Computed example of a mutant assay.
Amino acid sequence: MPQQLSFDLPVRIAHGREDFFVSSANAAAVAMIEGWQSWPGRKLALVGAEASGKTHLVHVWATLSGAKIVAAADVATADIPSLASASVAVEDVDQIAGNAEAEEALFHLHNLVLAEGHSLLFTGQNAPNFWPIALPDLASRLQGTPLVALEAPDDVLLTALMAKLFHDRQVVPTADVLPYLVRRIDRSCAAVQATVEALDAAALAQGRAVTRALAKEVLDKMG
């Protein structure tokens, strides 16, 4: 079958609370985000594996709290007083370890946001005591931050996430695709994301619907 031209069509990523499916794997994290006004010390560390839903929950929290969102790597060049005029979510804090300028800026942001009476949300892939932050004062403040984790997804969450990602791409798979994939892919949110992307690309390239047969072909190629 001749292949069609494949175009990168816009993907509508749904980050609303109504788009976040709650299961036993993430219920504790959702409860903490929704109860943000009761965080001890007005701060929280939200941790979980890649593609586990951290960014989605950050956006949910920003909507609830009016918070600003910034990548930890961008804090070094940010206007800290302006940023600290509201609550702040700082994503991927574990990725700035050893970046002296970014660590120093985050330390000042941490102190100023709390001094102004606002709240802080940090994200990373594991607990703050495993973040190799070199600045001792920042490390101690992060390690003293209350923690909630997004756990490994169960079948219900994997299915819901897959359905959401297909919906974001305006793809409607046949009814047997999702249960077929859930039984065969790695049990991680990152695997779900990679599988949906690969299926969407294959369907566009071949001009086919996303069916179980196409899913089998794509999985076979992904190894």
Rank of each mutant, 00 (worst) to 15 (best):
I69L: 13
I69N: 10
I69E: 05
V70I: 13
V70D: 02
V70R: 01
A72Y: 10
A73L: 03
D74Y: 15
V75G: 04
V75D: 03
V75Q: 04
A76N: 05
A76W: 00
T77G: 01
A78S: 15
A78M: 13
D79P: 15
I80M: 15
S82I: 07
A84R: 13
A84F: 08
A84Q: 13
A86N: 03
S87E: 04
S87H: 02
S87K: 01
A89R: 04
V93Q: 01
D94T: 12
Q95N: 12
G98V: 12
G98L: 02
A100P: 00
E101T: 03
A102Q: 00
A102F: 03
E103C: 06
E103T: 10
E103I: 02
E104Y: 05
E104Q: 12
A105T: 06
L106G: 01
F107M: 09
H110G: 00
H110D: 01
N111E: 10
L112G: 11
L112F: 14
V113H: 15
V113G: 14
L114W: 00
L114Y: 01
H118T: 12
L120N: 11
F122D: 15
T123W: 13
Q125T: 08
Q125V: 03
P128M: 08
W131S: 09
P132F: 00
I133Q: 09
L135M: 09
L138Y: 05
A139I: 00
S140L: 06
L142E: 12
Q143K: 13
T145W: 07
L147M: 09
L147Q: 14
A149K: 12
A152L: 08
P153M: 02
V156D: 09
L157T: 03
A160R: 09
A160Y: 01
M162T: 05
M162G: 07
M162V: 04
A163S: 02
L165E: 03
F166R: 11
F166I: 04
R169I: 02
Q170E: 01
V171M: 06
P173I: 14
T174C: 08
L178W: 04
P179I: 10
Y180L: 15
Y180G: 05
Y180N: 12
L181C: 07
V182N: 00
R183H: 05
R184K: 06
I185N: 08
R187T: 07
S188P: 01
C189K: 09
C189T: 12
A191H: 02
V192C: 10
Q193R: 06
Q193N: 09
Q193L: 11
T195W: 11
V196T: 09
E197H: 07
E197Y: 05
A198I: 03
L199S: 02
L199D: 00
